[in-house]
Design a protein around this nucleic acid. Structure first.
Ligand code: SF4
Ligand code: SF4
Lengths: 134, 134
DNA sequence: CCATATAAGACCTTTTTGATCCTATATTGC
DNA sequence: GCAATATAGGATCAAAAAGGTCTTATATGG
């Protein structure tokens, strides 16, 4: 239905929050969840994945929590969205050449390609630094 | 997951096909379904709806079928997609002011608005005439 | 060794999507 | 009028995705 999921939105909320914290403060999941108004359980899932991908670093045990995996100015909205939701693909003919079969002659195929690339490039222009306003 | 549905794609396929036919030829559902490689049953559903919205005109009985509801140059990709899938809304805060609650201070909110509008305007630029190449 | 805090995965419910089937209704031609 | 044709409309069903909860590891610091 052409919209990002809650997971994607929660991920962005959390990442913007982390970017707004002091540079290498280790943030508790619970604090972050409260601040971004999301369930700790679901935010945990999301950030476990962001950790695996390297967008955040995580520390277990007492004094553990999450920190940005890179400087805020080196993380874009696009990366966060695609890390959580998978690559932005507007129509299935853009998954790979031949997925649709009509792509060689379909006049609409290139349109989706253009719209998709514009969208990705726009999202790629915004960094966490821009969004956290620091 | 940020992609159009099959219904949307089938609708576009069918509309492009109609636009490629002689101006006021009444096209059989079955012919259209065969040409666009979609099940007649599902294409029927889709075009019933497009008919209700006025994007096509339909005629029942012998010699019946579908015709574009307006000249091909007056129907855009955006209209077809939104007729079938509902309005393009990238994040729920864009449904209406206040749907999210954080929209008044959220730094990401305006970004989604900008991306969404760009996307809609791009899709609004392509007409069936462009796509059918007539 | 104990309290803390994330990692990982199982599990469940609801919503959306994709698809089919059956019956009704309108139109044409005989 | 009647039969053949073709869309309208609704009921129904299965599969997939999304949203969310819970339980059990595992690592860390004191
Ligand atoms: S836009 Fe054209 S190529 Fe892409 S999925 Fe639709 S029919 Fe296939
Ligand atoms: S982008 Fe901001 S305003 Fe929009 S839904 Fe997410 S948190 Fe709410």
């Amino acid at each position: 239905m052409l919209h990002i999921t809650r997971r994607g939105d929660y991920a962005i909320r959390g990442m913007v929050y982390l970017a707004g914290q002091p540079a290498d403060k280790v943030t508790l999941l619970g604090d972050m969840a409260a601040a971004v108004e999301a369930s700790p359980a679901i935010l945990a899932k999301i950030f476990q994945h962001l950790s695996k991908v390297g967008l955040v670093s995580s520390y277990r045990g007492t004094g553990g929590g999450f920190v940005l995996g890179r400087p805020a100015e080196a993380i874009t909205l696009l990366e966060i969205v695609e890390a959580v939701e998978g690559p932005i693909i507007l129509n299935r003919c853009l998954i790979a050449k031949g997925t649709c079969g009509r792509d060689s002659f379909c006049p609409v195929h290139p349109v989706w390609g253009r719209v998709q690339e514009k969208m990705r490039s726009m999202l790629g222009e915004y960094t966490l630094k821009d969004l956290a306003g620091k």
